[in-house]
């Protein structure tokens, strides 16, 4: 079986935000929000992007959307109509415009991502109108189709966002993202503001849409359990860098990076018998303004040795498709979730 086409290939992507100080806005340093991230997203599949707060997940998503211009690196995008692939990192806004409809985003905050002054009908029609896809009766038909796709009712069309709960708003958000039938959706923590029971609804809806329409997701989350449920492959980030990039199954069976192991063991579990198997890391995640030398994880790593503080480990393939940035990936025998039997 041949693998699906690569839609998006991110290569060594970096984004350093300058820090300005003083009256003359002198640049005194950089927030290395994203500092070398590479991955591939294939048509119709889901790639999970996991990491702790501030590790640069949103920044990666926004660079793909063209909201931030990368400091360096490439975002190769393959338009679905067979044109040659384009580097979104190096493109003028004018050229970006026709490509936008192929890549859409679902935001984290259901209360900020819908314009409070527009009705649901207007919100859903907006992308269609802007891109001159449909007009008049056809527009109305498309809007109705979208509303049904995400499981809302037609009476909701005339309402304003304030009349909806968080979960319903997220449905509207998803409908808006689907309006142009994109081939990639960047979902930035779409469920982290929701209750678990509502989260399950949104997860089911997203899976359903993927099965029906075949869209590819870049699923950004800090919830390993959710990512596992969703994704075929997973990228784990730590302070702007990829520490591990692997298909879900081998990753959870046998993680190769100590950070992955710690993260898996820290996921709170509803099985009381699991308590006590935790790897409690010391300290806080590293500061992206001033990341540690060598391996960024070494100050918190249980297995760190001298060379970790000086030499930065490259992202190496330890098994087919399983990439790890750790000097001792081959030596360490780490316990994955499956062995722990934890909640994930």
């Amino acid at each position: 079986m041949s693998e699906a086409q690569v839609l998006l290939e991110v290569k060594d992507l970096k984004k350093h935000f300058p820090i300005h100080r003083g009256v003359f806005k002198k640049v005194v340093g950089h927030v290395k929000a994203v500092d070398g991230v590479s991955f591939r997203l294939r048509a119709g599949e889901t790639l999970g992007l996991v990491g702790e707060s501030g590790c640069g997940k949103t920044t990666v998503g926004r660079m793909i959307m063209g909201a931030y211009r990368p400091t360096s690196g490439n975002v190769w995008f393959q338009p679905p109509n067979g044109q040659p692939r384009i580097d979104l990192a190096d493109i003028r806004p004018k050229q970006m415009k026709p490509l936008r409809r192929h890549i859409q985003m679902v935001f984290q905050d259901p209360f900020a991502s819908l314009n409070p002054r527009m009705t649901v009908r207007q919100i859903l029609a907006e992308p269609l109108v802007v891109n001159k896809v449909a007009k008049g009766r056809e527009l109305e038909a498309r809007v109705r189709e979208l509303v049904e796709l995400v499981g809302l009712k037609l009476i909701h069309l005339n309402r304003y966002p304030h009349a909806f709960s968080g979960g319903q708003r997220q449905r509207i958000s998803i409908a808006r993202a689907m309006a142009l039938y994109p081939c990639v959706i960047v979902a930035d923590e779409p469920t982290s503001a929701l209750d678990v029971s509502v989260q399950a609804q949104i997860v089911n809806l997203s899976l359903e849409i993927q099965d029906k329409i075949g869209v590819a997701y870049l699923f950004i989350s800090h919830d390993l359990g959710l990512v596992r449920h969703f994704s075929k492959k997973i990228v784990l980030m730590y302070v702007g860098r990829v520490v591990e990039y692997a298909p879900a199954e081998p990753l959870f069976a046998r993680p190769r990076h100590p950070y992955t192991e710690a993260l898996m063991s820290n996921v709170p579990s509803t099985r009381p018998e699991m308590v006590g198997h935790k790897i409690i890391l010391e300290g806080d995640p590293a500061d992206p303004i001033n990341p540690p030398s060598g391996c960024p994880f070494h100050p918190r790593c249980l297995y760190a040795e001298e060379m970790c503080a000086t030499v930065e480990p490259p992202l190496m393939e330890v098994e087919p498709e399983h990439l790890v940035a750790c000097h001792f990936a081959d030596v360490l025998n780490l316990t994955g979730c499956d062995a722990l039997g934890c909640a994930v």
Partner: peptide, 15 residues
């Protein structure tokens, strides 16, 4: 409604 270890991947979650 929380996916757990025994939940098959990509299965429908209970809502």
């Amino acid at each position: 409604s929380v996916p757990g270890i025994d939940t098959p991947v990509r299965s429908k979650l209970a809502t």
